[in-house]
Computed example of a mutant assay.
Amino acid sequence: MDQQNIEISGRFCGPDGMANGGYVSGLVAEAIGGPAKVRLHAPTPLDKEIELVSDAAGARLMDGDKMLVEGEPLGKPLDLDPIPSPPTDALIEDCRVRFPPPSEHMAPRCFVCGTERDPDDALHICGGFEPEHARAADHWVPASDLAGDDGLVATRYLWAALDCPSYFGAGIGTAMALLAGMAARIVRHPRAGEKLRVTGWPIHSEGRKYHSGSVIHDADGKVIAAARTLWVKVQA
């Protein structure tokens, strides 16, 4: 078993006071070392020492005795067929126009989709739900600080980029909802500066649970990463 103390910077927030769910899921996936299935049990705190524990069964984030996030190797297909084709520039523009203003956004300072964040300090993927195509989509060009020494974008940022588009793609509107589960597979790691397109779409819903998918396409229209997510609306 490997155990290390980590602290998640406030830079990587989702809703106020907690870490972005896709980012922390990506941390767990990095420890697993491949396609993974992750469950989020409780919000992950920011700027506080927690533990990342990994073993043969998988990996988990712990706050003392409290399980925050746990993951295991995926071991099966994502069950996303059919994956949408890459969004056109026109669809992306329609999605961006439909993105909620800060006053209606449930997490306007989110690392992934927060419009109140400096684009140089966050992913700034801001595509709203376009009902005719039932899609949320946006462009994304990863910054150099998201890549390692090899120039390739790290797993945690790809998982983060797949997170919020799946929320908007689920058609939840602006309702408060939290990521409860995420499974993702990375085909290849893009280089910083690549021109990418990210799409989210609904799969099905039941009560407060919303299942959705998300995908990242490269400039050639090839899938480089995809995810299936579960969102749960927070009861008022």
Rank of each mutant, 00 (worst) to 15 (best):
V112K: 00
I224A: 04
V198W: 02
V223W: 07
R135L: 15
L68F: 06
G221M: 10
G181S: 12
L196E: 01
R117N: 09
A160M: 10
A161Q: 04
G169F: 02
R208K: 07
V69Y: 02
A177K: 00
A29V: 06
K66F: 12
K195P: 06
K48H: 12
A160S: 10
A122T: 02
R39M: 11
I6S: 08
A59G: 03
V69H: 01
G207C: 11
E132K: 10
V232N: 06
S9K: 01
G10A: 13
M67P: 10
A175W: 10
D55M: 09
D94S: 08
R39G: 06
G14I: 09
D2R: 08
L158R: 00
P77Q: 13
E116F: 02
D138E: 12
A134K: 10
P45T: 09
L61F: 03
S214D: 13
L78S: 13
R185P: 09
A227L: 10
A59R: 00
M67K: 02
V141M: 12
R11D: 14
V53N: 01
P45E: 14
G169Q: 05
E30T: 07
M67H: 02
A31Y: 00
P108K: 01
S85T: 15
A177C: 06
P45F: 07
D79V: 13
L46P: 01
I172G: 04
A122G: 06
H41E: 15
I32R: 00
P142C: 10
Y23L: 11
G21W: 12
A90Y: 05
A42D: 15
A180T: 03
L78V: 13
M176S: 10
